[in-house]
Design a protein around this nucleic acid. Structure first.
Lengths: 241, 241
DNA sequence: CAGTGGTCTAGACCACTTT
DNA sequence: AAGTGGTCTAGACCACTGA
């Protein structure tokens, strides 16, 4: 452990461990070495290591269980929904969405794509159009835009046994992309004719417009997602701390 | 420091310190004793005390500055806006709101008030109707509902020299209420005639509807705020982690 | 330069899980 | 019983602030 690096040791350790996960040296579900061993390997004290591990746990990159061990976090539909799917019914309870993919194309990035995803002009993107269905009713129409360079040979949950699998699980296991954070900008917009046809509402019905940019563990912008939520029977939950 | 209490020591210490702040034993802006002294007073080690202080800092109840000391956090308009005011212009930059209070009344709580604020039926509430103005244009109409029991003799920033003061600053210094957290439910709604008249938009224009319940450091629901944001030129920013 | 918070260490002991 | 993470301590040293 060298100290010309100005950052505190625990941050350096955190960066080293994060790199091992992001690079795939430690794979999802794998147990990390026990704390005393890992601390000795890294040449730091147990306390310093634990501080780094605590931060990785907060970012959902590892899971620690007393008595069992520390594991590289697995991406599951439950986790992806719990962390990133903020839709609630009017009683305030989470809803379980189904997904219907309507169109997948690969095309040159638009100006908006280039800006939001930090692409070079002319880069290619995949576009996924889909709707999300709660209790049989379509309530969201959305378009997901992905840099083609990060998702070569894009693979989607199209097989019947995968229909319940959240797309962030595929990012992780098919493309090695670990989603950790998203920035959203919210507004209200009237339903277009296409929106209305899918959602079963009148043209002009106010919809909640969600423009999400998603970031991975390496800090890259990996997804632009524009969603329109029909809020006649649902709400979007936010906590401010 | 007794140990029949099942919680870890650092949580007990955190609760003790929080109580001193909430009760007013330590007032806003006051310096806490230095860490070694405070640790000795509490009968815990420096490390345990620091863990409790770190959590209080995360909740914005204290501020720590290396070389200077630890202080009970002061509520300022800048802090209130930075933490709780999520409106951005289309460039993504924060906006500085002005406030126009249009009506203040005290009335029995509605069913919604009782449920959101955990009141007993028949309790009284204050209602504040106001609009918020960015760059000269009214963009938000909102109603704030406060339990009259927590805000006796409600005092508001009505004097000219207080017009730039955020209302959470008044909660803190006039009523001893320290706002730390808020839960919001977002949806889209058409502008009513009154909304349209204030916001200068057409009736039916989609507005972002924000239903916020605010909590204080003691965990009490202290405010219900229903806002309608005109998103023609602004967005509501959210971060998901 | 004195006083403050921030980092880092080494080690004891506790609580939980699995064998 | 063995092995894991969780808590707590005591103390050294560093980095920053303000008189």
């Amino acid at each position: 452990m060298r100290r010309p690096d100005a950052r505190p040791l625990y941050m350096q350790v955190e960066a080293i461990l994060k790199e091992r996960i992001v690079s795939g040296a430690w794979v999802s579900g794998q147990a990390l070495p026990a704390e005393p061993e890992l601390a000795a390997d890294l040449g730091v004290s147990a306390g310093t290591l634990r501080r780094a591990l605590a931060e990785l746990e907060r970012r959902h990159l590892i899971e620690r269980r007393q008595g069992r061990g520390t594991y590289v976090a697995q991406q599951t539909s439950e986790r992806a929904l719990g962390q990133f799917f903020r839709v609630r019914n009017l009683a305030g309870n989470p809803v379980e969405p189904e997904t219907l993919i309507t169109r997948v194309v690969t095309a040159p990035a638009s100006e908006e794509d280039v800006e939001c995803l930090h692409l070079s002009p002319g880069a290619e993107v995949h576009r996924i159009d889909r709707s999300r269905i709660f209790e049989g009713e379509p309530r969201i129409v959305e378009r997901i835009t992905l840099p083609a360079a990060l998702f070569p040979g894009l693979s989607l949950p199209l097989a019947p046994e995968q229909l319940g699998t959240e797309i962030y699980v595929h990012y992780r296991y098919r493309h090695g992309i670990i989603v950790v954070r998203a920035d959203e900008k919210l507004s209200a917009t009237p339903a277009s004719e296409e929106d209305a046809a899918v959602l079963g509402c009148a043209v002009g019905t106010p919809l909640l417009l969600i423009e999400r940019v998603t970031f991975d563990a390496a800090g890259r912008a990996v997804e632009l997602r524009v969603s329109r939520l029909d809020t006649r029977a649902h709400r979007y939950a936010v906590e401010i701390v």
